[in-house]
């Protein structure tokens, strides 16, 4: 079996084939999802609420199990891994949430150090001991998102944009080979949206980490993405560079379930 932590990066980092997800209540959230991600790519996923975007991201890092298909991350088949091995793989996949999901009562630095927790053994994690190497890594990540000056303040003292940057730093501290972002800017104002997306894009380019971003705002997606994937009702309707995305595609992606209702792209 291949070591899930091997540093050699193959050009194709994530390879998804016929991914299928059926929830226990019988609802088919995803079906026939196939695409690949190359290193350094910045991909935006667009689609309506409930189309399956979040489910897809959570499937990719194994937070929820697949119902079928194959998912290869960094050359390792995810579906056959044991729970323990999944943890080892997941520590190298950064995940950024809409609600930032920081631990409020801890300092910013501690929150970023949480990104290193997958690398610690149980004892030092319980005692809260982080080596100098870990701390340097965390400080470097904070510096990367220009948040070094807030390292000592508590996470609940930060503003929304700052919190999201700390969350990005936490993902960076994981030394990720893949970053997944689930609506990272949905609770931020337009100005902060731009800044946070800029951070994400720069990191993807400079660290050569492929990034997959779920996003509602089409303009932002168009501006930042190298490639756009459009999902509706659990199926991929569009996958290609931004310039190929036509209003026909948009109409399909954003089509309402109510036949009477017209999408804003149908005028």
């Amino acid at each position: 079996m291949q070591n899930p932590n091997s540093n050699e990066t193959s050009p194709v980092l994530v390879e998804i084939k016929d991914l299928r997800k059926v929830y226990p209540n019988g609802y088919e959230a995803l079906s026939n999802i196939s695409f690949t991600l190359k290193s350094g790519e910045f991909v935006c996923i667009i689609g309506r609420s409930g189309a399956g975007k979040s489910t897809l991201l959570r499937c990719i890092n194994g937070l929820i199990p697949l119902s079928g298909g194959s998912l290869r991350v960094n050359g390792t088949e995810f579906t056959t891994l044991s729970d323990q091995e999944k943890l080892l793989l997941r520590r190298r996949i950064g995940f950024i949430f809409q609600e930032f999901n920081l631990v409020d009562r801890l300092t910013v630095l501690r929150n970023v150090l949480i990104g290193r927790i997958g690398y610690k053994n149980d004892l030092s994690a319980m005692l809260g001991y982080f080596s100098q190497e870990d701390r340097e890594k965390a400080l470097w990540s904070l510096k990367r998102v220009n948040m070094l000056h807030r390292a000592k303040s508590r996470a609940d003292r930060l503003s929304g944009g700052e919190k999201q940057r700390v969350a990005i730093a936490r993902a960076l501290a994981q030394e990720p080979f893949l970053i997944l972002a689930d609506e990272p800017v949905a609770s931020l104002d337009p100005e902060l949206t731009w800044e946070v997306m800029n951070d994400l894009q720069t990191i993807a380019r400079e660290e050569n980490v492929p990034t997959l971003v779920n996003i509602h705002d089409l303009e932002t997606a168009r501006h930042f993405a190298d490639r756009i994937i459009g999902i509706a009702k659990g199926r991929i309707l569009f996958d290609g560079p931004v310039r190929d995305l036509t209003s026909d595609h948009l109409r399909e992606i954003y089509r309402s379930n109510d036949l009477q209702k017209k999408s804003r792209y149908e005028i």
Binding site: L63, L87, F95, F97, K120
Partner: peptide, 19 residues
Amino acid sequence: QPLEALNAVGANGLKTFRW
């Protein structure tokens, strides 16, 4: 939500509890 984040960085049950 923070527990989900810990799960996503690859923390096991014990680490999720502690942090």
